[in-house]
Computed example of a mutant assay.
Amino acid sequence: METKEKILFQALKLFNQFGTKDISTNHIAKATGISPGNLYYHFRNKEEIIRFLYQKMREEIGFEDLALPETLCDMMAYCKYVATVWWRYRFLKKELVILMQKDPLLQREVQQDTKMQYEKLLQLMEHLMEKGCIVPLTEEMKHHLANTIALYSNFWILFLQTFGEDVSQTMALDVSKEVSKALLPYLSDKAVKELNKCEGV
């Protein structure tokens, strides 16, 4: 593993464990086993490290180049995969709004991605209707369902934190179940059977 990747690996561990506020570049350098000067050779500041981690997360998710799923099972499998990626980068899910306020470059990236992802969700609604997986929806209902899925996707971990308990990986990954439940009232009978089959019901 090259030094730059080691820095990102250790930064991710520290941010997930302690949050970004209490972790400095000196902490990251020490955990990596390098001098602060060596760290600054690779990254200008902590904000740049956070941006690189955000970019790594979005690359792992691969949402931008993702083809629309052929089946509901494919869609739910992808939801579960995305949830595992989010868990690996969970500090971003917990702190993203605050981090965006501190870093205009990160803010611009996140806003662009959010708009792109929302358009993908609307395309998904159309795709599922065309395949007979969900009942015909009005424009208002398409946006409502896309909003619901987006809210679960982006704020599920934050919601769990409001209960004042430590959020476990199992709890965080339950977001895919919540998305499934949100879709359920709009699924065709055929789609419900398919969903139950792929979920082992």
Rank of each mutant, 00 (worst) to 15 (best):
Y81H: 07
L105E: 14
L160K: 11
V110Q: 10
I157T: 10
M116D: 14
A146V: 06
E126W: 10
V82F: 03
N196K: 14
D103A: 02
F91N: 07
N38I: 08
E47I: 06
D113N: 15
I61S: 00
Q10S: 02
I7C: 00
E199K: 13
Q55H: 12
V97T: 15
H127R: 05
L183G: 01
L124G: 02
H144Q: 13
G132I: 05
I149W: 10
V175I: 15
L122D: 07
Y89W: 06
L121D: 09
Y152M: 01
D103M: 01
M57G: 06
E126L: 10
N154F: 05
I149S: 00
G62M: 04
M141Y: 13
Y81D: 00
S176Y: 11
H127T: 02
E48R: 09
A191D: 04
F63V: 03
L145W: 10
F155E: 13
S176V: 05
L8G: 01
A150N: 11
K142T: 02
V135P: 04
V192Y: 11
T20Y: 07
I23G: 00
L12H: 11
T138W: 14
K197M: 05
L66K: 14
I34D: 11
K93C: 03
P36L: 03
Y54N: 03
H143Q: 14
F91R: 09
E194F: 07
L160V: 06
E70H: 14
C73D: 14
T32P: 01
M76S: 04
V201L: 08
L124C: 09
Q10N: 07
I149E: 06
A31I: 11
G33Y: 09
H27L: 02
P36G: 04
Q10P: 01
K177W: 15
A31C: 08
L96R: 12
W87E: 01
M57D: 05
G19V: 04
E5D: 07
A172D: 06
